[in-house]
Amino acid sequence: MKIYADSATDLPLAYFQQADVDLFPLRVHIEGNDYEDILGIQAKEVYDKIREGHQPKTSQVSPETFLQEFESLAKRGEQGVYVAFSSELSGTYNTAVMMRDQVQENYPDFQFAVVDSKCASLGYGMLVKKAVTLRERGLSVSEIEQQLFDTISTIEHFFTVEDLDYMARGGRVSKTSAFVGGLLNIKPVLHVEDGKLIPIEKIRGRKKVIKRLVELVGENGSELAKQTVHISHGDDETAANELKSLLEETYGVKDFEIQMIGSAIGAHVGPGALSVFFYNKLT
């Protein structure tokens, strides 16, 4: 059984290779050039360009890419699961469903699930890891699809950004809010709810917002010492390690995965973004 994911998981390329997950790279457009995320450009390059004043744009996987891959799979008599970036943040999920349905018209026995992760960054990556585990256990396509649906609501996403200007450029917040926030050193705390980005608090100052992220993990997490907490950052390892240390000290968290936020999401949240992902219920 094939498992697919796109580059908004923020999982490293090595994971895709080691776990036998096929990658659909999103696209990054910058300075007149077009790149495949992860394969053609690295996140650090994108952050450096943003700091120089460039505004990268991103685009979803093309319908032709999905159609070609799904048809090839159907012809070989294989089956698969595509865990997609949240449909509230990208059109990739809806495009994949249309292409899957088109293939099934010619291959009605084609077993293929397209799952709306309703997740982003390493929260999305956590769901992909779950899919791999379920495949290893020998579950069917429909069983994996159902268990992933059940898991989505157990994954918590909290994050902040260093500079609201980056989100304003992408239309995520108003330019006025970004200007006032910059003057007052205000850092928003955002949550992903049902796949959507929801601002929940405004905190003044970087240290205070990191402390608040730690509190939110404690308020919403379950059995934190028994799970892997995922942290992603916008080219700011210092902040990521500070968050890690506080979680270790406060809740006894032992296992972490820390990754740089990839180009697809980093283009919109900018350098200095900081995110934490964990389970609110262990299953």
Score class of each variant (00 low, 15 high):
E237L: 15
G272W: 06
Q60D: 10
R212H: 05
S232M: 06
Q42M: 11
K118L: 13
E78G: 06
F110C: 03
E219C: 13
G125I: 05
T133D: 12
G218N: 09
F24I: 08
L89P: 00
T283G: 09
A225F: 07
V217Q: 01
L11Q: 01
N220L: 07
K207V: 12
Y279H: 11
D194S: 10
T176G: 04
Q18S: 15
G234S: 06
K118H: 05
N220H: 15
H233S: 09
E71R: 14
A8Y: 01
Q55C: 12
E78F: 04
S7G: 05
D6W: 00
K175H: 14
I3A: 10
H191E: 14
S86W: 03
G182I: 08
A8V: 03
G270V: 08
I258L: 13
Q104A: 11
M99I: 08
G182P: 10
Y4S: 00
D163G: 04
F179R: 07
N280Y: 03
I210A: 02
I210R: 00
R135F: 06
D235Y: 10
E219A: 15
E45R: 08
I265V: 15
D37S: 04
S153P: 13
A239W: 02
V192M: 05
T154D: 11
L164M: 08
S232P: 07
K44C: 11
D37V: 01
L184N: 07
S263I: 03
I41R: 00
Y93M: 04
G182A: 12
Q102S: 13
R135P: 01
S72L: 13
H29W: 07
A8N: 13
H230T: 10
A19V: 08
N241H: 14
V28A: 10
P188T: 04
F70N: 01
L67R: 11
F85G: 02
T9Q: 04
E257N: 06
I3V: 13
H230N: 15
G181A: 11
D48P: 08
H157R: 14
L282Q: 14
Y124I: 05
Q55G: 04
E69G: 09
Q146A: 14
S222K: 12
F179V: 12
V180T: 13
S59E: 10
P56W: 01
S90W: 01
G80E: 03
A225I: 12
G53E: 06
K129D: 01
S177Y: 07
K129H: 14
P199A: 09
I3L: 14
N280L: 11
Q79V: 06
T133M: 04
S142L: 12
N280A: 07
D116K: 07
